[in-house]
Every structure is written in structure tokens, then in C-alpha cells.
């Protein structure tokens, strides 16, 4: 269980990283915290020719607030955002969901943007980004662009990121007055990937419910009427299948039940 050989580039500026990405494209892989990539390397399921370490690029550091948005740069580790003193006030959903990511010992190294880039269908951060309607800032030699969360996750572990791009930052909207948030997750063990996770954002008019662990990517739905029938319809439409840990039917049931609980709690939090 040892990685295949690769070149390693410790990029010290964004431009350097862009250059290597432009030259190597799909043969390059960006490494930040490495908490998901390194095991994939060790199992030889990921086989980049070049690994670009972006953790020494000064431009990619920091958590910033701007325009009622939390901007998290690519170097920011999950533990750093979780320890950010303003988090619970600015974005309660993240404060609720992030302790469910892996364990302390992986959040200390894993980055926020790295989790978004990996796009694991049962991960918490892509779910939150989608539920909150955040966006991803990508950059390359060609320039910079922003992609909304709803357009970013395109399939199983696949995203709108082009091979020559890296994620510079992700942006989570701050809590707005009158919003309520809730997060629920069911996993086999503490810290495991979710069988089903639900994130809800309640406003005066409606509730956004996002679910992960079910389809090939996180899925969000706007509910005017969070009736059992509406949830059942949502659950039945989800494209899910049986795996080692749960049946498709079980996951749909959890979407209905946890979904309802999450929506109710988000509404209560609004009040």
C-alpha cells in the first residue's frame, strides 16, 4: 500500500501552481491537507504524474468576511474554520455540521476547499455549501471564475473544476435575519461518512433541504410545504442504491424521517 511515483511541486505562488496545472492538466493533482488524497495515492487509485502542494502559497490563506459572505481560502484547514470565533454567529449551519467531519485528528489537516474539491457524495461540507447556496472560486492561467454550488457538483466525485484549475476559495453566505438552520446526520459510527445527512435552511417563505449520502452528489430541494407527502416524493425521486452499509429503501426512509426532523428544527430555530 505505497503510492506510485510522482513529481512533487511545492508551489510558492498562485502563478506557479497555475503554470504547472496549465502544463500538466489532468496528470497533475493538487494536494492541500491530503486527508483524502493520500490514501487514494497509497491504494494507487489516484496516480498523478505531478503533485502540486498549495499549502505554501501565501495568497491562499485566511478566512475573510465580506459582503455578508464567509470566504474560506484554500489553505484553511477544517479545524481552523471550526475554531473561528465568529462561526456560530455568522453561519450556524457550518458550526453544527463541521464537528461531524471525520475526527479531530483529520480535521486538523484536512482543508475546507479540499473537501469541496473531492466532492464525496456523503461529505458534510459539500452538503452545507449546497444548502446555503454558496459558491466556489476557481482560478487558472486563464483567469478566475465563480461557480455556484448547484452547478459545481456534477456527479460522483466530479465537479465543474477544469483540469487546469484549482479552487482558490469557497464562499458561504452568512446567516441572514429570519433564517433558521439545522443539521442531522446518521452514520454507522461516530465520524464515519454519512449514511444520510440533512441540512436545512428555513426562511419566512420556505425551507431548503439538502441531503447527502444518498445520490451521487448532494441534492437540494426547496420546500414550500414540508408535508410528509412532499418529503416522500422527494425521497422517492432520489437516485440511490444498495451498498454494504444500507439499502436504497433505508436511505429513502432516512431522508423522509431525518429530513422532516431537520426541517422542523430549522423552523424552530427561526423563531
Amino acid at each position: 500500500m505505497k503510492p506510485a511515483p510522482f513529481d512533487y511541486v511545492r508551489a510558492e505562488s498562485l502563478a506557479e501552481a497555475h503554470d504547472v496545472l496549465a502544463a500538466e492538466g489532468g496528470d497533475a493533482a493538487v494536494i492541500a491537507g491530503g486527508q483524502s488524497l493520500v490514501p487514494l495515492l497509497s491504494m494507487r487509485m489516484a496516480r498523478p504524474k505531478v503533485l502540486i502542494d498549495i499549502m505554501h502559497i501565501a495568497e491562499l490563506d485566511g478566512i475573510a468576511m465580506d459582503n455578508n459572505t464567509i470566504r474560506v481560502s484554500a489553505r484553511v484547514r477544517q479545524a481552523e474554520l471550526l475554531a473561528w470565533p465568529d462561526l456560530a454567529v455568522r453561519q450556524p449551519l457550518l458550526a453544527q455540521a463541521m464537528p461531524w467531519i471525520g475526527h479531530w485528528q483529520t480535521r486538523s489537516r484536512g482543508t475546507v476547499c479540499g473537501s469541496i474539491a473531492l466532492a464525496d457524495p456523503s461529505a458534510e461540507l459539500p452538503l452545507c455549501l449546497l444548502a446555503l447556496g454558496g459558491e466556489v472560486t476557481l482560478s487558472s492561467k486563464q483567469g478566475r471564475r465563480s461557480v455556484e454550488a448547484g452547478d459545481f457538483f456534477t456527479g460522483l466525485m466530479s465537479t465543474a473544476r477544469r483540469d487546469d484549475e484549482l479552487i482558490e476559495q469557497v464562499s458561504f453566505p452568512c446567516r441572514r435575519p429570519g433564517e433558521g438552520f439545522a443539521f442531522r446526520e446518521f452514520a454507522r459510527r461516530h465520524g464515519d461518512f454519512a449514511i444520510v445527512a440533512c441540512a436545512a435552511v428555513a426562511t419566512e417563505k420556505s425551507v431548503q433541504l439538502a441531503v447527502s449520502g444518498v445520490a451521487d452528489r448532494p441534492v437540494v430541494r426547496d420546500f414550500d410545504d414540508a408535508s410528509d407527502a412532499a418529503l416522500a416524493a422527494f425521497a422517492s425521486e432520489l437516485d440511490t442504491r444498495d451498498d454494504l452499509h444500507a439499502t436504497a429503501e433505508y436511505r429513502r426512509m432516512l431522508v423522509r424521517e431525518l429530513g422532516r426532523q431537520t426541517i422542523e428544527e430549522a423552523r424552530r430555530c427561526r423563531a
Partner: peptide
């Protein structure tokens, strides 16, 4: 060697982390 069991946990820059999920060159 895939980050689950925790046996290889050390402290890197003041925080607990899995040594098996880190390349030596990253730790330079």
C-alpha cells in the same frame, strides 16, 4: 495506512494528525 485506525497519530505543528495521511515532503 488509510487514516482510519489512528495508530500513527502524531502531533504536527501543534495538532494531532495521522502520519499515514501525510507525505514526508509535505512535512518538510
Amino acid at each position: 495506512e488509510h487514516g482510519v485506525c489512528g495508530a500513527c497519530t502524531i502531533q504536527i505543528d501543534g495538532a494531532p494528525a495521522r502520519a499515514c495521511l501525510t507525505l514526508a515532503v509535505q512535512a518538510d
